[in-house]
Write a protein that binds this DNA or RNA. Sequence first.
RNA 1: GCGCGCGUAGCUCAGUGGUAGAGCACACGACUUUUAAUCGCGGGGUCGCGGGUUCGAAUCCCGCCGCGCGCACCA
Length: 489
Amino acid sequence: MDERDIRTAKVQELRESGSEPYPPRLPTPRTHQIAAAIAEFDALAAEKTSVTLVGRIVLFRDMGKVIFLTVEDGSGRLQFYLRRDDIGEGFALARKLDLGDFISGTGYFFTTRTGEKTLHLTAYALLSKSLRGLPAKHEGLRDVELRHRKRYLDLIANRDEVMPVFIARARILAALRRFLDKHGYIEVETPILQPLYGGATAAPFTTHHNAADRDMYLRIAPELYLKRLLVGGLERVYELGRVFRNEGVDRSHNPEFTMLEYYEAYADYLSMMTFTETMIAAVAEQVTGGMVITYQGITLDLTPPWKRITLHDLIAQATGIDYDQYPDKESLLAAIRARGIAVDPARGRGRLIDQLKDYAFEARDPELLKPLFLYDYPLDLSPLAKQKPGTPGMVERFQAHLAGMQLVTAFSELNDPLDQRARFEDQARQRAAGDAEAQVLDEDYIEALEVGMPPAGGVGIGVDRLVMALTDQPNIREVILFPTMRELH
RNA sequence: GCGCGCGUAGCUCAGUGGUAGAGCACACGACUUUUAAUCGCGGGGUCGCGGGUUCGAAUCCCGCCGCGCGCACCA
């Protein structure tokens, strides 16, 4: 008989003796959360006030005629003390309690001779029987795969490290909503299940709608729907929700992740830059208590204004290449190769520029870890962004980088339906040439633009990465409760 | 997708060619202020999966699966 068999047998024995191991409610109402009771300990102990606390048994010390056990609830942990002389017949059953069981305990507070605040029980009750033991009390659960596959065990065993991260995550989401609401934005919900996917350059997850007998897609971004709402007359909208991209997993990517997108009519990318740094700094302050954070040992000051540099100047500083002097892919490629920088040449000019940006970040200049706005991007990488006047081939777009992670992308939204159609057609050519991630033409979206969309700025934030930055976590899987895992065989 | 590393008891880990181990957990016993309780005693393993080399494989080789790290890819 293994542990689980033994505990299952205990369930049976309890039922046969007329005791329900999974009762529907507490036999005695809970009077306090543990942390609240500890806060009032002196008064409660002085009056020997009867309190009822509940929780999971995390340590169990059976000394024959007395038992000490440590019980943990959502707020904290406390030692319970049971004496055979107090409990009577129930004491023998108490000795059969197991680590992991949920119990309630009624009694009064006292302090042991070693100074530990303790609840001296006059009665207890089993609330829920655990059939499987908890991870080792000292070593806990270190195996990263197990921690993520069985997050409930991770939360139990590594509570002090893991719980605060997800509490902070919840606070970050709430603070983002609060900030946007305060600034007149309304939160909307647009389709996750879409007949066409768009708004980003990524491969989708495909599914099938049986009733309509047609393929549908999980959204890769909410962008095109949010901008339809600008057409409809909503001036400030946002959506905070899950998006799905059929791509690999690494330290900063999970196939499903949380995106915040917000759009503001009559704004442009420059005003959205200011709004965004203000929002992120405010969220940091509300969640961490200040605008200066530490990420993986590096101090980062989020106080606005953040450094702003054009993509052109960043690349010029890092590589000495002034890409404005190389208006076509071939001449730029030659200049890159002349400096011995390795790039994938099977891409357009915009991709080359993008790779130069990556090269600049690879130098690991500590300055580039600080909050940074990079702006003015190549047009061919940004089919939904408005062209920058007087600068052919460039669009009004920015990205925010923090701690080396791309956190934000944003632009002045393209609202010229004729230009938009041409951009989609260009994407279609790239798709025909083998780029599976090129964006697909959305006729209905073009039609909406033809009705008329006000000039607007729009921003997308990778919320998981923001949570990583604000909780000092090195891996996106540490801020997603149930990260995507392969099937076990 | 490529490279490197890891996979041994429920958990944390040792074991690098010769009969599978430790601590915790678990079972049984002792103990009326313990606290990572202690003490005694005991059970528990397809060594990720499959194949190969060898008299003999957890250990060496090949393939597969899973995980991690790096690279590539990725608004």
